[in-house]
Amino acid sequence: MSEKKSTDDYWKANIRIITISMVIWALVSFGFGIVFRPLLSGIPIGGTDLGFWFAQQGSILTFIVLIFYYTWYMNRLDREYGVDEE
């Protein structure tokens, strides 16, 4: 029963980190890159504004960081809950 509890907690922790990551994922692309771009128009970057940078470059770089962070976090979580692959 205790192992079962642990697996449930593992899944909850996973859902939590997925949710946080997806919020960031949406924020940099749909948010900064598209919807909130007018709000960021005051921040100039290379002849245009921050929103344009996020739409053409910043979002992609954030996606890469997100995946590697998630990978690192889950490897740690796998070991913590004893569900990693030997």
């Binding site: 053409q56 979002s59 996606f63 997100l66 995946i67």
Partner: peptide, 10 residues
């Protein structure tokens, strides 16, 4: 296209 074709990997 840039965001869509990369964001899918997340």
């Amino acid at each position: 296209f840039l965001m869509g074709w990369t964001g899918g990997y997340v």
